[in-house]
Computed example of a mutant assay.
Amino acid sequence: MAEAEDKDEEDGAAGLRKIIHVDMDAFFASVEQRDNPELRGKPVAVGGSGGRGVVAAASYEARKFGVRSAMPSVTAKRLCPDLIFVRHRFDAYKEASRQIRRIFEHHTPHVEPLSLDEAFLDVTEDRLGIGSATRIAELIRQEIRAKTKLTASAGVSYNKFLAKIASDQNKPDGICVIRPGQGADFVAGLPVRRFHGVGPKAEEKMKRLGIETGADLAAKDIDFLRSNFGSFADYLYRAARGIDLRPVRAHRVRKSVGGERTFSEDISSGAALRDTLENTIEYVWDSIERSKARGRTVTLKVKFTDFQNMTRSKSTSDWIESKSEFAEISRALLEEALPLPMPIRLMGLTLSNLDQGEDAKTEAPKDGQLSLL
């Protein structure tokens, strides 16, 4: 494993970028524990505790018992009888997110938010002239702790894929650096489950094909991967070699604004789907508000356990400008789709058919656990 050091080698090779991925530690639950001292050190789940409830986030104390986001609340309570449920407070999470975003922008204008609690930063040229991406990542983590009383983990590398993997390596409250020349070897030793987008079902399929590590994946040619994983194959082929050419996009012309969430466990019941949709509406509408987007089309997307996608859309004659209208259309789309033919591993919402008369340069789309499209 590459260790964190305050050196400049991570930017040594000509033409390589310096990318940081910052990921807050158990963000929603940590905000609740910060604001309510009685919750500190205890297993906490953000979400509904009733039979229809779903865990939106879990503290690290709860995760020790196997409690995960998108898990039905009854399952979570069975795993951890002392689990404390609290209702979400999105205003508090958004305010903390705004504070963190200001810290990022103190160091670089090149910030690509992935959700309220994580972002990519390109610090190839940083505002303060520090030069070392590792040092900048450490300073950012220190500033976040000082100003928000929350902890963050960071990954530092020369592309987005590696930086994101690195940020999860030493969680919570840790940092990991993958330097030029180390990427392929680092990925080779990882279980395939660590690759973004590889959920339980994909992992199971890969194991049946003899693929358990990054090295196993790299040993398969592109034709084999395409025949078994379709459009997902190109990403897997590059990732297994530590390759990612995507830039950090702070601004771009949007064609849509939205978000999607990949679940740690597949979801099948209507109650769990409805509760998850409500959480997705909250996340996505926050992005819509921040981007000042206006659109006429709402699209619901789900990805089934067999990786097939299903979308449902509805367009209106007038601009959709209120959260209540966006939520009403989103709920109607889900109800029209129920019952689903099989469990799903991902749900997303987008607002499209945007008003091109507005300034379309907005925050870049998010991707990841809850990613903006």
Rank of each mutant, 00 (worst) to 15 (best):
Gly15Thr: 07
Asp23Ser: 03
Asp25Lys: 04
Ala26Tyr: 00
Ala29Phe: 03
Lys42Glu: 09
Val46Asn: 01
Arg52Cys: 08
Arg78Trp: 03
Pro81Arg: 14
Arg89Gly: 03
Phe104Met: 12
Glu112Thr: 02
Ala119Ser: 15
Leu121Thr: 07
Val123Tyr: 07
Val123Met: 08
Glu125Pro: 00
Arg127Val: 10
Ile130Gly: 01
Thr134Asp: 11
Glu138Pro: 03
Gln142His: 14
Glu143Ala: 09
Asn159Cys: 09
Lys164Cys: 08
Lys164Phe: 11
Ser167Pro: 02
Ser167Thr: 02
Asn170Pro: 04
Asn170Trp: 01
Asn170Met: 09
Asn170Lys: 15
Ile175Val: 15
Val177Glu: 08
Pro180Trp: 04
Ala188Val: 07
Val192Tyr: 06
Pro200Lys: 15
Glu204Ile: 05
Met206Val: 11
Ile211Thr: 08
Ala215Trp: 03
Asp221Tyr: 09
Ser227Trp: 04
Ser231Pro: 01
Ser231Ala: 14
Phe232Met: 15
Ala233Pro: 03
Arg241Gly: 06
Gly242Ile: 06
Gly242Glu: 11
His251Ala: 03
Gly259Glu: 07
Asp266Met: 13
Ser269Ala: 12
Gly270Ala: 15
Ala271Glu: 15
Asn279Tyr: 13
Glu282Asp: 12
Tyr283Pro: 01
Arg290Asn: 11
Val298Pro: 03
Leu300Tyr: 05
Lys303Asn: 02
Thr305Lys: 10
Thr311Ser: 13
Ile320Asn: 05
Ala332Pro: 06
Leu333Trp: 02
Pro339Ser: 12
Pro343Thr: 13
Gly348Trp: 01
Leu354Gly: 05
Gly357Cys: 11
Leu373Asp: 13
